[in-house]
């Protein structure tokens, strides 16, 4: 069996230590070692975006990052988004716009939208579609997802 490495990283603001094999992806570590199952595996090769997390401020597919690569870095996942007593505005907008059906892609879309709005608080519809094109949704036809993100941008404008 492959030897495990000790890794220390920050996840959703908390210092976290874990052991992982060098071949384990960040997605596997989050899900199987840390039981943060909000990031989902849809393809395991970076095509669907269901595992999107933010690594040192940058949106990544966690299936394409190795767990050991996160040493000393900071990871934001869907689990860290809401406050104890209230949802994040993007989460609220998804609910109000009925922007999810099965919900499997939702955590990835929300993380992706968060990264977008942090880099561009006032995106056009086209910019939203361009940015979110790395996240696949098979249920909604994207209409209500795009509208939810437009709503958040409008509210913060």
């Amino acid at each position: 069996m492959a030897r495990k490495s000790h890794v220390q990283t920050t996840i959703n603001g908390e210092t976290v230590e874990f052991l992982c094999e060098s071949r384990q992806s960040l997605l596997e570590v989050l899900r199987d070692e840390l039981h943060l199952t909000g990031a989902k595996e849809g393809c395991n090769n970076g095509n669907c975006g269901a595992c999107s997390v933010i690594l040192d401020g940058r949106l990544v597919n966690s299936c394409l990052v190795l767990g050991v690569e996160t040493e000393g870095k900071s990871v934001e996942t869907i689990e860290g988004l809401a406050e104890p007593d209230q949802l994040h505005p993007i989460q609220n907008a998804f609910l109000e716009n009925a922007a999810l059906q099965c919900g499997i892609c939702t955590p990835g879309f929300i993380m992706s939208a968060k990264a977008l709005l942090e880099s561009n608080p006032n995106p056009t519809e086209h910019e939203i579609r361009y940015w979110l094109a790395g996240n696949l949704c098979r249920c909604t036809g994207y209409d209500k997802i795009v509208k939810a993100v437009m709503d958040v941008a409008k509210a913060s404008a």
Binding site: R31, I78, G103
Partner: peptide, 23 residues
């Protein structure tokens, strides 16, 4: 009418448990 779906909060917070999330 258009109420917020009952399982909505679970699904936007990553708490909803799907088949692969079983531990």
């Amino acid at each position: 009418t258009r109420p917020i779906r009952h399982d909505g909060v679970d699904k936007v917070t990553g708490r909803a448990l799907y088949g692969a999330d079983v531990q």
